[in-house]
């Protein structure tokens, strides 16, 4: 499932491919499915009680790029969609546009570079995508300005229970929500939102929350993981393999304390490992959801994900499983808060 989800080509604003995969997957398990004007999927499953509304959110978009120009030599200029670190780009494989044209992000060869170039970060605007053609005319036959670009990176399992893929932020969340729809017997009326445009400012979820007006919202995310020797111990915000992450505070939201304590209690009772995110940085859809309409109680729960926003995000299956089982439990017992 996660392979199919992470292989989809769906940067922010261009979520059609992933949306179709999700809808095909969840249709048999929902009471109704709606796609709103922004493109969010709002899947509804009736709960044991309709007294309150429980929403779960996972964003289905991913970071990517957009073509901003074509050079005389047939190479593509590009800009980011979502936050991407310039340092990781040189040499990476990408896929361009509807024709899914393969390309390589190229820079000036090391043999011809000056020492000061090698000692500084090359900016995105100084890189070009090589799609294997030699003229502007040839390039224009397969790509045009405004085409979306995605990392080209396949899903792979490796080591001791680790997964590498692009877009694990937030296709892990998408996979969790799909499983919630398939297997959970929700306590309250359950709205699973697969939201668009999170990576460019959490735009989709705000709209979906205003449509649903939930009482509780669980945001399922892939979050920052820094657990190598490069990072001083007190700044290792999460560690892969240590369980589900509760985000107590990030730039745009704070966890509702009752919801947080309830989730911790459920985890403790069921032997599910969890950790607290050791930073106030990062952001997710909770910020927009909690203040939509007349407000709601939110909790963001995440799978720690190394190398976020890169072609090779890495997660541990153990953490994924912890988030998955806890999310299902929360949806089934949210009425006990």
């Amino acid at each position: 499932m996660l392979k199919k989800l992470t292989d989809a080509f769906s940067p922010s604003g261009y979520e059609d491919e992933i949306r179709e995969i999700i809808i095909n997957e969840i249709t048999p398990f929902c009471d109704s499915i709606e796609t709103d004007n922004m493109g969010n999927i709002i899947a509804f499953k009736k709960g044991k009680s309709s007294k309150k509304k429980f929403m779960a959110d996972a964003h289905m978009d991913e970071v990517g790029f957009i073509v901003t120009g074509i050079t005389e030599g047939g190479r593509l200029k590009f800009d980011e969609v979502g936050g991407i670190d310039d340092r990781i780009l040189p040499g990476k494989r990408v896929i361009v546009g509807e024709k899914r044209v393969p390309g390589i992000i190229g820079i000036n060869p090391v043999h011809l570079s000056y020492p000061e170039e090698r000692n500084s970060v090359i900016k995105m605007r100084d890189m070009l995508i090589d799609i294997g053609v030699s003229t502007k005319k040839e390039a224009e036959m397969v790509a045009e300005k405004g085409d979306y670009i995605c990392f080209d990176s396949e899903y792979k399992e490796f080591g001791d229970g680790f997964i590498k893929a692009k877009a694990l932020d937030d296709r892990v969340g998408v996979a969790v929500l799909i499983d919630m729809l398939k297997t959970a017997n929700p306590a309250y009326d359950f709205y699973a939102v697969f939201s668009v445009q999170e990576e460019i400012g959490c735009r989709g979820a705000a709209v979906a929350a205003n449509i649903i007006k939930p009482d509780y919202a669980l945001i399922v995310e892939g979050t920052i993981c820094a657990d190598s020797a490069f990072t001083p111990i007190h700044r290792r915000v999460t560690a892969a393999g240590n369980g589900a992450v509760f985000s107590v505070m990030e730039r745009s939201s704070l966890a509702n304390r009752d919801f947080l304590n309830f989730a911790k209690k459920l985890a403790d009772e069921n032997g599910i490992a969890y950790q607290i995110k050791r930073t106030g940085n990062g952001g997710n859809n909770a910020g927009r959801i909690q203040v939509a309409g007349k407000g709601c109680k939110t909790l963001a729960m995440a799978v720690p994900c190394r190398y976020l926003h890169s072609p090779a995000c890495v997660i541990s299956k153990k953490d994924f499983e912890a988030v998955r089982s806890l999310a299902i439990l929360i949806s089934e017992r949210i009425d006990e808060i």
Partner: peptide, 15 residues
């Protein structure tokens, strides 16, 4: 907000 407790009992925090 307490983000980390170290082995000697000191706390780190975020604002």
């Amino acid at each position: 907000m307490i983000t980390h407790i170290d082995e000697n009992g000191f706390l780190r925090f975020a604002a």
